[in-house]
Design a binder for these strands. Structure first.
Lengths: 155, 155
DNA sequence: GCCAGAATCACCCGAACGGATGACGACGGG
DNA sequence: CCCGTCGTCATCCGTTCGGGTGATTCTGGC
């Protein structure tokens, strides 16, 4: 529904925009380079290329639509005790303590809160965070959480 | 609301189109100044147009694919197409734009990245964030994400 | 036609965070 | 016994974030 509407609007405004580009170019050429008629042909050819491109894209995708139907079955969030994907875990050298920190980050705790809950100093928490960010390729907590979830490190 | 969406799409595709025009003009200028290699020029333009056309086609089809996915995904047991729990949403007065920001936060984007993706200033993003935190009873991004997930506002 | 809500942008300030670096004790395998 | 890893703590510095306030524009509804 929504995607459909977007597509319609795209057509309604994208195509005229393209035509506008061509039109502008034609006019410009008329006024600026009268004797370079070849370039006008260039523009026309360009328009043709654009049309071909669009047609090509549409045709390619149209056939692909049918194929897509099978691939969607992947998401199977069945209940059960979560297991933290050990492979990724020691592939990245993430220690148990760091995983613990990671969980707390995902719970939305601040550095201070984590320090309080784990009975360690805030500096320690920060150190764990830094090393965690390194190993996850993140540079922010929210990013770390997102990465960790896609890697299956946390629930 | 609807007009707003139209306007946004217009912006999203109109502005790049405008940039394209400028880019073309710049290229043209360069080539005209250096020498009149019209054929090369034309070829480049043709390639650009073809690329744009293909991109456009892909874009159109991508949205088409999404529609397909939704219909297919229905028979899947637990995970259907995610719907943002409208009750909580307007119980808390969360606007569409704010929900959009919320999603980006959950993706781990920084203020700057969000601003770039939404074509607004960082200040605007920050404002949305603040109001969002109010409505979610959070005072941190990570917390906001956690709350939003438990409320079923985001996937 | 005016008002309320939504979205946009700006500025300021203090707190939190991220990055870099260094250090120290404990523990375990070679 | 020595070395590497892990967990702990610290300091410094720059950036980001969160909170507060105010202002403008646009749109829809009364």
């Amino acid at each position: 529904m929504r995607a459909r509407a977007v597509a319609r609007v795209l057509l309604l405004y994208g195509v005229p925009a393209g035509l506008l580009i061509v039109a502008l170019r034609v006019v410009e050429y008329r006024f600026l380079v009268v004797d370079h008629a070849v370039e006008i042909y260039g523009a026309i050819i360009a328009a043709l290329f654009a049309a071909v491109g669009i047609a090509l894209g549409l045709r390619l995708t149209r056939s692909r639509v049918v194929v897509r139907e099978v691939t969607v079955e992947v998401p199977v969030p069945v209940a059960g005790p979560f297991t933290p994907n050990r492979r990724e875990l020691d592939a990245r050298g993430i220690t148990p303590r760091e995983l613990e920190i990671l969980k707390l980050i995902a719970e939305g705790l601040s550095t201070r809160e984590m320090a309080g809950r784990l009975f360690v100093s805030e500096n320690t928490v920060k150190t764990h965070c830094s090393r965690l960010f390194d190993k996850l390729g993140a540079n922010r907590r929210t990013k770390a959480v997102q990465v960790a979830k896609t890697l299956g490190l946390i629930a």
